[in-house]
Amino acid sequence: MKTKLFRKGDIAVILVILVAAAAFRLYQTKQSDKLEAVITVDGKTVETIDLSAVESKRVIELDTAPKVVIAVEKGAIYFEEAECDDKLCINCGKLSRKGDTAVCLPAKTVVTVSGSDVDVMTY
C-alpha cells in the first residue's frame, strides 16, 4: 500500500464537508419552536407533552422490549430507566432545548423536543 498520507485533494474534501455541515447547522438554527416533547416508539407518536405545562415530575412507563421509563418534569424530559445494556439513552441526560433528542435504539424509542408553530402564548 503506497498511498500518500496527504494530497491536495484532501483539503478540498475537508472544506466541502465543513461548508456543508455549517450550512446545515445554519438551517437548523433558523427553525423556530416551542418546548414540546414528542415520544415515538417504532415511529409512532406515543405521547406529546408541552414541557412548559408540566407542573410536577411524573413518569411514563413504555411497554417496549426492553422496557424504558421516561420522566417528565418542568421544562425537561429524560430517560430515567432502561433495561438495555448500554444505557446510552440515560446518558443523554435531561432534554430541555429545541432539537434535543435521546434515542433508545433497542426499545426503538425516540424522545425529542420539537418546535410548534407558535413561540409563546399570550393570555
Binding site: 455541515a21 455549517a22 446545515f24 447547522r25 437548523q28 415515538t40 417504532d42 415511529g43 409512532k44 432539537g99 433528542t101 434515542v103 435504539l105 426503538k108 424509542t109 425516540v110 425529542t112 420539537s114
Partner: peptide, 12 residues
C-alpha cells in the same frame, strides 16, 4: 430502526 428522522439533527 426508530422510524424517525430526528436524529439527523446530529449530522453537522
Amino acid at each position: 430502526i426508530t422510524g424517525s428522522g430526528v436524529i439527523i439533527y446530529y449530522a453537522p
